[in-house]
Nucleic acid binder design. Structure first.
Lengths: 141, 141
DNA sequence: TCAGATTCAATGCGTTTGCATCTACCTTAA
DNA sequence: TTAAGGTAGATGCAAACGCATTGAATCTGA
């Protein structure tokens, strides 16, 4: 059990250090990192995403995400249309401009990520992906 | 290089999932998770900590941290006294009440962490700690 | 079939955040 | 000694956040 807490603390520290490092990089242009994250999550799904689904992948409260999508839609980066199957819901997708913006920022950012993780061996990268994947899979209790 | 990006994405997802899980737990009382993090960082150092040092460990901008410490000091949880060696600086430490609060919240939270990470084997915990430790160590570029 | 419970997303509101800037102090070197 | 440059932390201000709540649509069981 102390091992678990050490591991979690170490993960948190790595997250903080790398996030600060990435945030300081001059690649974000007109977006914040959080906004980029939303665009990135949308870029991964070809079929439109539900608000609640997107919210599961983003570290924001539901109202904050709702308003952020609002702003991104106003800026023409995200398309928000009503879900025909569930009229409470909303279907989110990137506009062409949104996709373009995501790619333009994603390219240099991906390089930064690769550079930051280049201290790890390929085996370590695989282990890290496997272990964190296992952690994220265990969503419920 | 695609491996590095997969690993980072997986780490981010694990972080997001677990943070949401922890945040939803009913253990935080009068504190937010970010405030708890500040108290926790202070609880680890017996000698008073400098603002800038603390800022390195917390995912907050310098002004945001400055004001958070302000509020925590107003609430009697943190002691902020001028550094005799450098009169620009500040020495931060927990008050007895702050230490008590940190412990009261830290205990159940540590149990949650252990529970969430219980899907991993002891070897995986060690690997995770080692790998993330390596990542956090590489602070510059 | 329809009342109650649940889910999805939006909105009101007070608090917190980040950016830019400021003041105060330290350091260096001429 | 002192002027120039750098660092530590605080503050003004607009933007963004979280909590609580709402309105609307769906689901559920009697």
């Amino acid at each position: 059990m102390p091992r678990a807490n050490e591991a979690w603390e170490s993960l948190m520290k790595a997250y903080a250090v790398l996030m600060k490092q990435f945030n300081a990089e001059d690649v974000w242009g007109e977006l914040t990192m959080r906004e980029y994250d939303v665009l990135y999550q949308l870029s991964k799904c070809d079929s439109p995403l539900r608000m609640s689904e997107l919210n599961r992948h983003v570290l924001l409260s539901q109202p904050a995400l709702s308003r952020m999508v609002d702003r991104l839609a106003d800026r023409g980066l995200v398309d928000r249309c009503p879900d025909p199957g569930d009229r409470r819901g909303v279907r989110l997708s990137l506009t062409p401009a949104g996709r373009e913006t995501q790619r333009a920022i994603g390219r240099p950012h991906a390089r930064s990520v690769a550079r930051a993780l280049s201290v790890l061996t390929p085996q370590e990268l695989d282990q890290l992906a496997a272990i964190t994947g296992k952690l994220a899979g265990n969503e419920e209790r």
